[in-house]
């Protein structure tokens, strides 16, 4: 493939995922593996418990905190994970950290992969644990660099645009001529917060006549995101979005952040993503793609009423495909820099 970079010896990469806690993060690990394999790398995807000592050029931990937490909790099933989290129990992460240390001894380089707003608690937990484990590189998959927001300047921060792999590009392209009727006018998905509930009410009561009240609206309580849990898994979400016109969401926090995975889910299902920025935050003047798909909560109703669905759909697809393939960016940002 075009992005393949010739190496004398194929780099050996270990990707460590949690195997629990958040189904989507495990899927991201698999996606990274696919992209690295497309580049000719040798890749192993492991849980901490299935790690077999071997030499690696690079070890990547997809959300280190979740990796350690799930290991320490003994890889619980969905129901037990939920009980653990509800109880507020904090497992002892020392054994997980010992395994991480063992990996570190056999890996030339290592880093934590995150798709989080750096101002949130989720990032802080990873940051703290990474420091404890002696890992100083963070790879931020997203749509905009957050380097200026980091308070700890001792870490190495690398922003990697979360674009499409070669296989995903082909899949997205197939929607270009898609003229199927999408029967679900909108989908609003996320874990339950008071702010999101208020937004859902506005969608239904104020935009019902224009957008329809029949949108799929799913706000389960925050729980571990497992493939068989109350949250939609990736296949279920994809199936829903393939029948949906607008995929709408708001963040659960008030910081500016562009959820690149939501955009990717939309383009791979051929629908139009709409990010509604909360009233208590603002769309920063940073250079981010798809700004035309980000509406401010204060006037989103006006904008949503006049959207031209087909024109937006085509523009979004074209703009997404205009970005470099994910493999190219991984090669530039990780392989060339680190190996």
């Amino acid at each position: 493939m075009s992005t393949l970079i010739p190496y004398k010896d194929a780099p050996r990469i270990l990707i460590v995922v949690s195997g629990g806690a958040n189904y989507f993060h495990n899927a991201i690990g698999e996606r990274l593996a696919e992209a690295f394999r497309n580049l000719g790398c040798h890749v192993d995807v492991r849980l901490l418990k299935t790690y077999q000592p071997a030499e690696y050029d690079l070890a990547l931990y997809v959300n280190l905190y979740e990796v350690a937490f799930v290991h320490a909790a003994g890889y619980p099933d969905a129901a037990r994970t939920e009980r653990i989290i509800q109880s507020g129990y904090q497992p002892n992460l020392s054994e997980a950290l010992q395994t991480v240390a063992a990996i570190q001894q056999h890996a030339k380089h290592s880093g934590v992969v995150l798709l989080e707003c750096v101002q949130t608690e989720w990032f802080a937990r990873n940051h703290h644990l990474a420091r404890t484990a002696g890992i100083h590189t963070f790879y931020d998959l997203g749509f905009h660099s957050q380097a200026h927001l980091l308070r700890d300047h001792s870490i190495t921060y690398r922003f990697i645009p979360n674009t499409l792999t070669e296989r995903e590009r082909q899949k997205a392209l197939a929607y270009q001529a898609d003229q199927r009727e999408r029967t679900i006018p909108w989908a609003f998905i996320g874990h339950m917060t008071p702010q999101r509930l208020h937004f859902a009410q506005k969608l239904i009561q104020r935009l019902g006549t224009r957008l329809g009240t029949q949108g799929v609206f799913y706000l389960p309580n925050l729980r571990p995101i497992l493939s068989d849990g109350p949250h939609f898994n990736q296949a279920q979400l994809r199936r829903l979005l393939q029948n949906t016109r607008y995929y709408i969401w708001t963040a659960h926090h008030s910081y500016f952040y562009v959820e690149s995975e939501r955009f990717r889910d939309a383009v791979l299902a051929g629908c139009v993503p709409i990010k509604v920025q909360r009233r208590d935050s603002s769309i920063e003047a940073v250079d981010v793609p798809f700004k035309y798909l980000m509406l401010d909560e204060s006037d989103f109703e006006e904008h949503l009423q006049v959207l031209d669905y087909e024109r937006l759909r085509q523009r979004f697809l074209k703009d997404y495909l205009a970005m470099p393939p994910f493999e190219t960016l991984l090669a530039e940002e990780i392989l060339k820099q680190q190996l």
Binding site: P194, L219, P220, N221
Partner: peptide, 9 residues
């Protein structure tokens, strides 16, 4: 808006 009922399986 106060709460959401009947929101899960």
């Amino acid at each position: 808006t106060e709460k959401l009922y009947n929101s899960e399986s």
